[in-house]
Design a protein around this nucleic acid. Structure first.
Lengths: 229, 229
DNA sequence: CGTGGCCTTGATAAAGTTCAAGAGCCGTGG
DNA sequence: CCACGGCTCTTGAACTTTATCAAGGCCACG
């Protein structure tokens, strides 16, 4: 597929002129990463940022003992790795492909030039970073102020919201990744799912989860918003 | 003091022209908050953002049961409350004056106009948000991947770094606030300080803490960086 | 002086992690 | 085509960390 038409599908580039797309197309690099491959690592110099074209990837931190905390899971259309472009030069976290991925890479200098000449691009990028700050405040709130059942309840309600409010939701990531996203470990997640089933809050078979007592989940989550933007 | 000269002292506005300062001065509102006063609350609509002129304040989240997690403590020159300007309209957290504060308030619409006409202002703001994202990744790492002694060790080393690398550091906030900043409670902080003293890592009297075994602290913190920008 | 905030310490309880074991599933290669 | 190895997921028991509840000390400020 032609690159300019793919660029137009990226929300970050909404509202740009034809000329701008041409400029972007001129600087973009098309890259492919296979499942499990590292895209970048914490501490590395970042000379540009990325946008996911296809596939999914995780942005995560690692502790010395090997425990992982996922910060984001990104899919098509979402930009990532922007922080070093505007501050500090180095990636604050790691990125790894969860599936085979295609990404666009935009080199820093050319992109900054484009921003300078293009207020609406600047505002779009400010909106992206602001949304991300908002998401992080929710994650911090989860980690510091809620217990694991509350985080899980919030996540399930969020999934339901995403999937048209249906009571039958399907986990789109394996449970060990979900554990890492919620700031816990697979054993704990497993136990808490079992408990929720015992308490009649949900039913589950494999990745399919049915919300039985929505009120009960909401009471655990305190509020239904889960990293909603 | 004249407003334009104060504007020039704000890093966010570095590199602007005289004319820009005049524009900013035309839209700015000068506000005062007394110690303990709420500046804004989570969920409120934000029609602009702020810059601290004098005094300090905290940005924080509250759990249903009243536990508090501090996200930032800001002092003179630091902008805050920008998220709603660029995304989502509503404040993601609360702000409260820790001391009597003077702040500048910049209404959203006028400020966005200014950004559109001013690429370097846009880039400065992008840098501010990017730095904040980086700080949040460190806070998330602390909360999720480190235990309280590790967070405290990192904080002490960070303080030492701030205070010219001296081995004698002085806490610039009361210990109950420090507990909330580290994602714990005063009792736990107190116990861990006592333990560190027993282990010969530090000495302490009141807010004055002497780093005795820097290596030992570094081993706990894994790395000396604490929310370093 | 006395009251309230801040800080510390102890006893207890809760939540989560670690370690260990085992079940189920799938793809690869013999 | 089947067996093996690897991976995910679950469950149990012991242990660690942290929070909670309660009490007491200290200091500053009214």
């Amino acid at each position: 597929m032609k690159i300019p038409s793919q660029l137009a599908a990226i929300p970050l580039f909404e509202g740009l002129s034809e000329e701008n797309y041409a400029d972007l197309a001129a600087i973009v690099l098309d890259k492919v990463f296979h499942k499990g491959q590292t895209i970048f690592s914490e501490g590395e110099e970042g000379n540009g940022f990325y946008v996911v074209v296809a596939g999914r990837l995780k942005i995560f931190k690692l502790s010395r003992e090997g425990k992982e905390q996922i910060l984001h899971i990104f899919g098509a259309g979402e930009p990532f790795g922007e922080v070093p472009v505007f501050a500090g030069q180095r990636f604050p976290a790691n990125a790894e492909a969860l599936e085979d991925c295609r990404v666009f890479f935009f080199p820093r200098a050319a992109f900054v030039e484009l921003i300078k000449r293009n207020p609406s691009l600047a505002l779009n990028m400010l909106a992206v970073l602001s949304r991300r700050l908002r998401q992080f405040t929710l994650l911090i709130e989860d980690l510091s102020l809620k217990e694991v059942p509350g985080r899980l309840a919030a996540y399930l309600l969020y999934l339901s919201h995403q999937q048209a409010g249906s009571d039958e939701v399907e986990l789109d990531i394996p449970k060990n990744l979900l554990a890492s996203l919620l700031g816990t470990i697979p054993e704990t997640l497993s136990r808490i799912l079992a408990r929720m089933i015992r308490q009649g809050l949900i039913e589950a078979e494999g990745p399919r989860i049915k919300i039985v007592d929505r009120q009960g989940l909401q009471a655990l989550a305190v509020v239904g918003s889960y990293r909603s933007t």
